Simulated scan of single mutants.
Amino acid sequence: MDKKCFESFFKEKYSQAYFLALRILHDDEASKDVVADAFELVLRRTKQEKVDNISAYLMTSVRNVCLDYIRKQNVRSHYVQASVQSTEPSTQNPDNWDVREEKIQAIMLSLDELTPRTRQILKLCYVERKKYREVALELDISESAVKKHIMQALSYMRQKFRTRQFY
């Protein structure tokens, strides 16, 4: 698909794709991001091979990207909830504060062991709650590079804390 044809397709189908995403996600900004990702998928796919019904492929892509987004949000929500629960004071055992403090110190030390770039990306994604796309634009790297840094950092942290007896 050439550039002009894709622009025409984009203008024609953007609203339909956006409202489908909005109906699923109920979030304006997330819907815009999902639609952008879906159009990117369609563009990449049409460069690689012929797609018979590009409109249907776009709507299916929007739906699938929405479902991926929801799954990601559920995982984040789970980790936030677990984090909140682990920092709540326990009236049954006041020594839990010492354990929590030890956990926090261990996490901070292990963050210092990461490369400065990975540490910066983790901060932008998890502290400042920026999306991968925003971080990629800010640091002038690809989204896949952001994901790679995150995956490496989390893998490193899991491996490091697997040996500790915190839980």
Score class of each variant (00 low, 15 high):
Val65Met: 09
Arg63Ser: 07
Met108Lys: 14
Ala30Phe: 03
Ile104Lys: 14
Glu102Leu: 07
Ala30Ser: 11
Glu143Val: 07
Val34Asp: 07
Lys130Met: 12
Val84Asn: 11
Asn64Asp: 14
Ser55Val: 02
Val146Tyr: 00
Asp95Ala: 10
Pro94Leu: 11
Asn93Met: 13
Leu109Glu: 12
Val75Arg: 13
Val146Asp: 00
Phe39Asp: 05
Val99Thr: 09
Ser83Met: 05
Thr60Trp: 15
Ile70Thr: 02
Ala38Glu: 00
Asn93Glu: 14
Asp33His: 03
Arg129Met: 09
Ile24Leu: 10
Lys50Asn: 08
Ser83Thr: 04
Tyr69Phe: 09
Val62Ser: 13
Ile24Pro: 12
Tyr57Ala: 09
Tyr126Phe: 12
Asp112Ile: 02
Val42Trp: 01
Thr115Pro: 06
Ile141Asn: 09
Arg100Gln: 14
Arg76Leu: 02
Pro89Ile: 02
Ala136Val: 03
Lys50Leu: 05
His26Asp: 15
Asp37Tyr: 11
Arg119Lys: 10
Arg63Val: 00
Asp33Glu: 12
Leu41Tyr: 12
Glu102Gly: 03
His149Trp: 10
Leu58Ala: 09
Leu67Val: 02
Asp98Lys: 00
Val127Asn: 07
Leu111Val: 02
Lys123His: 11
Thr91Ala: 14
Arg23Cys: 03
Ile107His: 05
Lys123Cys: 10
Glu49Tyr: 09
Ile54Trp: 15
Leu41Asp: 15
Ser31Lys: 00
Tyr69Asp: 07
Asn74Leu: 06
Asp27Lys: 03
Gln92Glu: 15
Glu101Arg: 06
Val42Leu: 15
Val35Gly: 01
Val34His: 06
Ala82Gly: 01
Val127Arg: 08
Gln48Ile: 04
Ala36Arg: 08
Ser61Phe: 00
Leu111Tyr: 12
Val65Tyr: 04
Arg100Pro: 07
Asp140Met: 05
Met59Gly: 09
His26Val: 03
Gln48Val: 05
Ser144Ile: 08
Gln48Pro: 06
Pro94Tyr: 11
Glu40Leu: 05
Ser31Leu: 01
Ser31Tyr: 00
Ser31Glu: 01
Glu128Ser: 04
Glu102Asn: 07
Arg76Cys: 00
Lys130Ala: 13
Ile104Pro: 13
Leu111Phe: 15
Val80Ser: 04
Val127Glu: 08
Ser55Met: 03
Tyr57Ile: 03
Gln92Tyr: 11
Phe39Tyr: 09
Cys66Ala: 03
Asp27Gly: 09
Pro94Thr: 01
Val42Gly: 01
His26Arg: 07
Val51Ile: 13
His78Pro: 00
Ile107Gly: 05
Thr46Gln: 10
Arg45Trp: 04
Pro89Lys: 10
Thr87Asp: 04
Phe39Lys: 04
Glu88Lys: 15
Lys72Asn: 08
Ser55Asp: 10
Arg119Gln: 14
Asp98Arg: 00
Glu102Val: 00
Met108Thr: 03
Tyr79Ile: 01
